[in-house]
Design a protein around this nucleic acid. Structure first.
Lengths: 343, 343
DNA sequence: ATGAAAGCGCTAACAC
DNA sequence: GTGTTAGCGCTTTCAT
């Protein structure tokens, strides 16, 4: 197979015996071209294996048909599924999705936004990041590209999609309260982020309805590894009186908690009830299966894409905000508070 | 904030009082420019918030600094981690990673390869896909872009990285044999793919060493949902004599198997031993913890990127192939075969 | 050391 | 209907 160089529209035009202008119009079916030449040109294109150069098109049309997306960690299944769904929807509309990991670092976030802007993405979907960078916001409105916030707010001018984390935590807490729990330990990702903040608010709200004050000693909100969460869980269990239930706000939190509990021979739900926000294989298949509040990750990705496409459309739709509802799934990890706890 | 349009190198040149050629040379520190003008130009650039247009650069330089990657499903944690690591390494070298999901469909794979070629990616990392598409291979060598196969072979001309699935399955099987198991059920993703094929080969090899023939009745190799795997597992357990151990080649397989077993009240490892290829949270935290063969996903991503960068470098390195080793992790899910099995 | 100009591949405005 | 041409923003000869 001869290593033929890539064919350009010029080659196609030559092969079809027309000018490049006509070739372009024929290929794109724009402007007036005779049906005969359309056929001749498309034929030639096919025969040559011509593929239009998206880069040249982008330069000319001032649109790359690429949207960027920033998440803390693409390998977090919660983001991965959302990305997947968003990519799918965007692709249907002819857009590609370029993903970047911020690693929860403001500097990386700023770096990526600059990078994506240099690459002239048509829009940006931006997820939460623990360490906000003021320069980032600046970088963002220096370009006039559409931004969709995902569990994050960029002001009135931009669209946003939010999972109803407040309600998720509220319902989870109510469930535990109804079972009779009053000392509920809370493990959350950083309270600085929107999701963390909202969750704690929802938790507090449910507590308040029963006249129970938020006990700071029972709350641990850090960005944290699984191992760290495990030791946090144990430290919480060594309080006296010990908590009778764990509310794990995030999938990492659940894994860590279970590990810690297991390590100390504590039984779920016998010794302590466990409730998670966010569903995973682990929650589903653990023994006992873990009750949780969950939401539709595919829907999130899809709507994120939808929101973006709406902003990208000719109609120049107004910025919108969407709230994604959550569902409670009752499984076997919660019971009434036991009388004795501790090893 | 006035919606100033994006600054071009022309603006910078004007502001610095030089020609655009000089501005370009100053910015890129290429060719001869006086130190004074370099300063003047970079100053102007900074003041204007100038960001070079990567699209225009790509068109001119014939390199997009983007590499594409094709996987069946980015939300599969096995791919997600690899992607993450690859992206990180590539970014260090100034490349972006554009990911596409093939959904295990040959037509989608072909579509994406075309798409990526149109976008003029500098290279392509291509993972396994169940339904190969002959057109795809054609599309691939019509362009002369570097391809790195990931658990997949593209012939002598291209680099490749392979996880040692054969050895993984071999070791897992040996472990079970040493425990005394002779009837080992095998659940694998499609045997058409390289990983599936290799795994079954490794399994057979270990069996052969003990003079045990491969029993086709004990092998189930389909692309399959978790629910389907669960029923497969149960159907295997209803064989007489029933298998005494399950070898789950793939993370989906493990989840499905555990679900099926659980559903029928079968205990691990009391009633049946379980061994997985591929480590997950589920394997780690399940009770009992699941023994498995695993490998370093970060390393895979890193080496994939490395292989690509080597091909992309000026030195035009020769195509290389790399084998990633696997490790056996013994946990609590395997025991000697029990005497009685079945409900 | 710097400016002028060509050209990457494409589309769109303008002639005919 | 079709050909010609300008120009997207940049880098890189080639003069000077």
């Amino acid at each position: 197979m001869t290593k033929r160089s890539r064919k350009t529209i010029k080659d196609v035009a030559a092969a079809a015996g027309v000018s490049i202008g006509t070739a372009s119009r024929a290929l794109n079916r724009t402007g007036r071209v005779s049906e005969a030449t359309v056929i001749r040109v498309t034929d030639a294109a096919r025969k040559l294996g011509y593929q239009p150069d998206a880069i040249a098109q982008s330069l000319r049309l001032k649109s790359t048909k690429v949207v960027g997306m920033l998440v803390t960690d693409l390998s977090n299944p919660f983001f991965a599924s959302v990305i997947r769904a968003a990519e799918k929807r965007l692709q249907q509309a002819g857009y590609a999705l370029l993903v970047g990991n911020t690693d929860n670092e403001g500097t990386r976030e700023k770096f990526l936004i600059d990078l994506f802007q240099r690459r002239r993405v048509d829009g940006l979907i931006v997820g939460p990041c623990e360490t906000e960078n003021p320069e980032m916001l600046e970088a963002l409105d220096s370009g006039d590209l559409p931004v969709i916030g995902y569990d994050r707010d960029f002001g009135e001018g931009q669209s946003g999609l939010h999972v109803d984390h407040r309600r998720a935590a509220y319902e989870a807490t109510r469930h535990l309260l109804n079972l009779g729990h009053e000392r509920i330990a809370l493990l959350s990702s950083s309270s600085l982020l929107s999701p963390g903040r909202e969750r704690i608010a929802g938790h507090a709200e449910a507590l308040a309805e029963r006249g129970i004050a938020l006990n700071q000693a029972l709350i641990r909100a850090h960005k944290s590894s699984m191992e760290f969460v495990a030791s946090e869980a144990l430290s919480l269990m060594s309080l006296r009186p010990a908590p009778t239930a764990f509310l794990c706000l995030g999938t990492r939190m659940l894994a860590g908690t279970l590990q810690g509990l297991q390590q100390n021979g504590l039984k779920v739900p016998g010794d302590v009830s466990v409730l998670a926000v966010g569903d995973t294989d682990l929650a589903r298949l653990y023994t006992p299966a873990i009750s949780c509040v969950t939401w539709d990750l595919d829907l999130v990705g899809q709507m994120l894409a939808e929101l973006m496409l709406r902003r990208l459309g000719d109609d120049q739709g107004e910025p919108q905000r969407i709230m994604i509802p959550t569902q409670f799934i009752d499984r076997q990890s919660c019971g009434a508070p036991g009388q004795c706890s501790g090893p």
